[in-house]
């Protein structure tokens, strides 16, 4: 809700094009998983800046805490213990919204303006327009949005759109003590991510890769994954895309066919009546 309406490129349930007089620099957050030590400072900074506090939970037997994303937890450190090539590895992923170029949530949303995409690539939820239908949840290929029980509104990472709009980096980026999270132009972040792959290869991570999935048009949160050949190990889908079920359901084609047929039924009724008149009981006198 922080960037100017001038910068809204796409708006949910809206038929017209967004304003295009100007365009802001496309931004991205780079999360270099190989540099992450799992300190959860980003998670704390997110809560701090956005003034969120999940209720104190209970130990679920693993290090991930709270156990899942929720309306108060917009970014979550997920910890995975994996046996890779005979050695136990502790994989850590900072989960949250990836800010897709082709956002399934925005496509699925039926409420005008409840989900917007800024020209800098940030996908933001406007809770005052949210009707609580949960379609963004089924639209998302990454299972990110969460509906708050108390108010039936959807919540997720804003990529600190309020901070970005005044030239600051997201809170998680600012706080990261190891420099695992970077923020800048999408171009530069991808360049930087590619550069890391050579270093990782030297350290033995031959399959390291940049996670910027093309199935959703690329994302504005980009990962460097040491085991890039197996993104599932980090809980990331291998080839995410907006489900064809959602695309068909929300396509202009399906909507147009639906509306035209409905209007067609009404017109057919009028024309039939003009041509064939009402079906009346024949006059008995004539009958006789």
């Amino acid at each position: 809700m922080a960037l100017q309406s001038l910068d809204v490129k796409n708006r949910s349930a809206t038929n017209f094009e967004g304003p295009s007089a100007r365009s802001t620099l496309e931004v991205a957050k780079l999360i270099d998983v190989s540099r992450c030590i799992g300190c959860k400072a980003c998670q704390a900074a997110c809560m701090e800046w956005n003034d969120l506090r999940a209720p104190v939970g209970s130990n679920q037997g693993f290090y991930t805490n709270p156990p899942d994303l929720d309306d108060q937890t917009w970014t979550l450190m997920r910890f995975y213990e994996e046996n890779i090539e005979g050695s136990l590895q502790w994989l850590i992923l900072k989960d949250g919204c990836l800010h897709c170029t082709d956002p399934g949530c925005l496509k699925a949303c039926p409420s005008p303006g409840a989900i917007v995409q800024y020209s800098n690539g940030i996908v933001d939820f406007h809770q005052e327009q949210c009707i609580g239908c949960g379609y963004c949840v089924s639209g998302c290929p990454f299972n990110v949005p969460r509906i708050r029980k108390e108010d039936s509104k959807a919540y997720k990472c804003t990529l600190c759109s309020d901070r970005v709009s005044v030239g600051l980096e997201p809170a998680c980026v600012k706080t990261c003590p190891t420099g695992a999270i970077h923020f800048g132009s999408k171009e530069e972040m991808v360049f930087q991510a590619q550069g890391r792959l050579a270093d990782l290869a030297d350290r033995g991570f031959k399959n390291a890769a940049v996670y910027d999935p093309k199935g959703v048009g690329g994302t504005h949160v980009v990962f460097v994954l040491p085991h890039g050949d197996k993104p599932e190990l980090y809980g990331l889908p291998r080839a995410p895309s907006v489900s064809p079920l959602v695309s068909l359901w929300r396509s202009g084609f399906a909507r147009t066919v639906g509306v035209i047929t409905m209007v067609g039924v009404a017109i057919a009724g009028v024309l039939h009546y003009m041509r064939h008149g009402p079906l009346e009981v024949p006059d008995e006198k004539k009958e006789a």
Binding site: A108, G132, C133, G134, Y135, V137, S138, C140, N143, I147, K149, S152, S243, L245, V246, W249
Partner: peptide, 17 residues
């Protein structure tokens, strides 16, 4: 929402939609 949808998989919800 919020009764049945949260307990079903995204695929089931997409098919339902």
């Amino acid at each position: 929402q919020p009764w049945f949808a949260p307990h079903l998989s995204p695929t089931v919800r997409r098919i339902a939609g």
